[in-house]
Design a protein around this nucleic acid. Structure first.
Length: 844
RNA sequence: GGGCGCGUAGCUCAGCUGGCCAGAGCACCUCGUUUACACCGAGGGGGUCGCCCGUUCGAGUCGGGCCGCGCCCACCA
């Protein structure tokens, strides 16, 4: 430590990390039961990913939990791995190929997937290294990947089982087609965005003469219309229901049907029905047994079905052509600007094209019920509570999940076809000639749903499963509550026989400092690695925890600065202790003075508070509470109290003990600096582990609780603070030691003398001023150090202030309502306060 | 359209089940080289708790309304 007064995180952290990794501490043996062990499955980052603020915050949260568990003596495993992230990874590699002048299609499926694996080999470890930099105590010796052979086996096993149980099926349904990526996507991968469109009114001639006018924003889809619908109660159209209208440009006769879905007060009250290209129309069509025509292909162009005039056009061109034709033939009645929300693909940004397509689906009701029950009956607790309500609401409205994707990177469906009607679903290819495997892969979230148990060796009877399943906490971002968390609960209950975790913590979204979303495209992103580089991982961890809440929060670099300051403070507090303690001293609580009893009592409280706050997922309070203890109690007061005392064996032992315990207290939040200092604190205990990360926190010793010492020292602090304030305002020289006199100061005098730079004396001299606090009046005796005028002004101000407070308290106590109705302890406290204030005023 | 949440010091935020003079960090001002720490210490200034009504002895805290902002869900073409 030497002459250094600053802790240098960039120098120390890599060194400390290496020691942790060598120790094997993060890789627990799979023994014991899940009840006695603690485990967390990390939300697997995409192999394409780089650590962003969300990861850093979640890493800090999970690591705090897991390190605290380890220090409480639990076997703790933080399950590590990465996700193959189908679409994201495929796109990344495709872009790279494009830059090299080739393409996925040119390579073919086999060589393309090889290229992705090679890419993963090269760049896939990036995130793991960044987690290490953060200090995350993940089990790096047991890294999983969602496309590894073992994991793939679990995925296929689940698919086959669900198929055999009738929950997975193939169907022609309207799905969200992403024309950019040319794949189906699920409802959850669709984002609604507001768009300025035009609403066109188009006349459809009636069989018996006249016309019915419909309103649409997508005239090009009319080519696939198979009906016109009106509301059954709409008197304007009641006589038409059952007759037909003629579809302009096409000539098809469309039945006019009645359906509740149609709003009488929107548009013209008549709705063209296009089951092939609109989700609502699809439902209406199924209700009425309408034909489902498709005029838009998967390439986003009009198909032959659209007719010669339009086939081959893009959707946009087709719209223009259809409008031109309608205008020419006199069917366009009106058009008006129309602002509405339409679906876009979250991945590609392309406007979703609803298409009827043959895809694989999963029936969800049977899985959703138990998953909802698990939360309702408390087997899974979601924090904060509001998120549990969101979770339940989603499960109650669950819809089928489209699980097939037209991609190459992922778990290929274990499905084979032969000829017209033969289908085989199984882990192995069927015997016989002529079978062809379904080229599609599964939605990435299908495999992610198995994460907590597939990572532990399921479906084998693996000791890791017995030791670590169910896991304890799942900490995650709000946006994947449905996409991932709910599905894990479903799959865990169905296949692993238990909930996958007992607590879900939904953490804050960290926004840019200006309140916008942190994003690369907006240029609002802040790289946590840059922050770590500048202030250290401990500071970033502390800062992120301190700014987190159940709300979204703005990134606040000052909180990171606070963390950095705390690390420096810990370093210097330890330095002070080591510089002063008696040679050969070892940590032990051996209080000989009031302040020793006080700090031990406060330390005990700080330990209990921090543990309770981490257990209650209140990380901001845990971090800030730690800061308050270190600054506001240990350094500002206790260490200052020790100055001027002889560092005998007892004091040395106590100071070392307090420092050592503070390192333990801080370690889950700030592991690096505390680990660094741990090595420097001497020990008398040969059994003490060389790494703080492996040390155990003793259960809170109730014997150390000392309310009396706490009350006494609180009085000292009040008096010292009041004296310092008075001195400052009266302009007393810093170094001057003032003669003072006080009654009822008892044994507190030495502490006050040390920190307020005063000396208690007797005598009968008339005081130049009286300073009051905590019911104690301290007379300042005449000395050349005091400017009497300033002192007097100060006293006058104080008197005025006290009178105001006394009047307020008197008013309250004179109020019969207050005395009569407020709880007695509150009234009592008010009386005490009044007495104290009066004492102080009299003393002045 | 429905739901959830936010609006407290110049800035970013705490204030749990209503009750000691509304707090913290940063910023600002003053002072300071006393046996750790100037990435420090001591002290200080600064708030109509968005607005209006109400409940209550008492409201930043509860209820209603309004204004501003954010997020989630949603099949009115």
């Amino acid at each position: 430590m030497g002459d250094r007064t600053r802790y240098e995180p960039s120098e120390a952290e890599p060194r400390i990390l290496a020691r942790w990794l060598e120790s094997g501490l993060f890789h627990p043996e799979p023994v014991g039961s899940a009840q006695e062990n603690v485990s967390i499955a990390v939300p697997p980052p995409n192999v394409t990913g780089a650590l962003h603020m969300g990861h850093a915050l979640n890493g800090a949260i999970q690591d705090t939990i897991i390190r605290l568990a380890r220090m409480r003596g639990r076997r703790a495993k933080w399950i590590l791995g990465t996700d193959h992230a189908g679409i994201a990874t495929q796109r990344q590699v495709e872009k790279r190929l494009e830059a090299q002048g080739t393409s996925r299609e040119e390579l073919g499926r086999e060589r393309f997937t090889e290229a992705v694996w090679a890419w993963r080999e090269e760049f896939g470890g990036q995130m793991i290294e960044q987690f290490k930099r953060l200090g995350a105590s993940l089990d790096y010796a047991d890294e999983r990947f969602t496309l590894d052979a073992d994991y793939a086996r679990a995925v296929l096993e689940v698919f086959v089982a669900l198929y055999e149980q009738g929950l997975i099926y193939r169907d022609h349904r309207l799905i969200n087609w992403d024309p950019g990526l040319r794949t189906a996507v699920s409802d959850l991968e669709v984002q609604e965005r507001e768009v300025q469109d035009t609403l066109f009114h188009i006349a459809y001639p009636l069989a018996g003469g006249g016309e019915i006018v419909v309103a649409t924003v997508r005239p090009e889809t009319m080519l696939a219309d198979t009906a016109v619908a009106v509301n059954p109660d709409d008197e304007r159209y009641a006589h038409l229901v059952g007759s037909t209208a003629t579809l302009p440009l096409v000539g098809r006769e469309l039945p006019i049907i009645a359906d509740e879905h149609v709003k009488t007060d929107f548009g013209t009250g008549a709705l063209k029905i296009t089951p092939g290209h609109d989700p609502n129309d699809f439902e209406i069509g199924r209700r009425h047994g309408l034909d489902e025509l498709t005029v838009i292909g998967e390439d986003g162009r009009m198909t032959a079905q659209a007719g010669e005039r339009f086939a081959g056009l893009t959707v946009a061109d087709a719209q223009a052509a259809v409008l031109a034709a309608l205008r020419e033939e006199g069917f366009l009645r009106a058009q008006e600007p129309y602002l509405h929300v339409v679906p876009f693909s979250e991945r590609s940004g392309a406007r979703i094209e609803p298409l009827i397509s043959l895809q694989w689906f999963m029936r969800m009701e049977e899985l959703a019920g138990p998953a909802a029950d698990a939360v309702r009956d408390g087997r899974v607790r979601i924090h904060p509570e509001s998120q549990a309500r969101r979770y339940l609401a989603w499960l109650e409205e669950i819809r089928p999940w489209c699980i097939s994707r037209q991609l190459w990177w992922g778990h290929q469906l274990p499905v084979w076809y032969r000829g017209e009607g033969e289908v085989h679903v199984g882990r192995e290819a069927p015997a016989g000639e002529g079978w062809e495997r379904d080229p599609d892969v599964l939605d990435t979230w299908f495999s992610s749903a198995l994460w907590p148990f597939a990572t532990l060796g399921w479906p084998d009877d693996d000791p890791r499963l017995r030791a670590f399943y169910p896991t304890d906490v799942l900490s995650t971002a709000r946006e994947i509550l449905f996409l991932w968390v709910a599905r894990m609960v479903m799959m865990g209950l169905r296949f692993a026989g238990d909930v996958p975790f007992t607590d879900v913590y939904v953490h804050s979204v960290i926004q840019a400092p200006d309140g916008r979303r942190m994003s690369k495209s907006l240029g609002t992103g802040i790289d946590p690695l840059g922050e770590i580089e500048r202030d250290g991982a401990d500071a970033v961890r502390f800062g992120l925890l301190a700014m987190s809440s159940t709300q979204d929060v703005r990134y606040n670099p000052e909180k990171v600065g606070q963390g950095r300051a705390l690390a420096t403070k810990l370093f210097n507090a330890a330095r002070f202790a080591l510089l002063n303690v008696a040679p050969g001293a070892a940590p032990a609580p051996r209080p000989t003075a009031l302040e020793d009893r006080w700090i031990l009592s406060r330390l005990r409280a700080a330990k209990a508070d921090l543990a309770a706050q981490v257990d209650g997922f209140d990380f901001a309070r845990a971090a800030l509470g730690l800061y308050d203890f270190v600054y506001g109690e240990l350094c500002d007061w206790y260490l200052e109290f020790t100055k001027g005392r002889a560092f005998d064996d007892d004091l040395s032992a106590t100071v070392l003990h307090v420092v050592e315990e503070t390192l333990k207290l801080a370690h889950p939040i700030m592991p690096f600096v505390t680990e660094e200092l741990w090595e420097l604190v001497p020990t008398g205990d040969p059994a003490r582990p060389p790494l703080l990360a492996a040390a155990h926190i003793a259960p809170e010793a109730d014997a150390l609780a000392d309310p009396d010492a706490e009350a006494q020292v609180a009085r000292v602090i009040a008096v010292v603070t009041a004296l310092r304030r008075w001195r400052d305002e009266a302009g007393v020289r810093r170094g001057a030691v003032l003669p003072v006199r006080a009654e009822a100061i008892d044994g507190l005098a030495p502490l006050v003398e040390r920190l307020a730079r005063v000396r208690f004396e007797g005598g009968e001299d008339e005081p130049v001023a009286t300073v009051t606090a905590a019911g104690i009046a301290v007379d300042v005796l005449p000395t050349e150090e005091v400017d009497t005028g300033a002192a007097q002004r100060r006293v006058t101000d104080q008197r005025e202030h006290l009178r105001g407070e006394i009047a307020r308290a008197e008013g309250k106590l004179a109020n019969e309502g207050f005395v009569g109705k407020a709880p007695p302890p509150v009234v009592e406290a008010e009386r005490d306060k009044l007495t104290r204030l009066r004492t102080e005023l009299e003393a002045l």
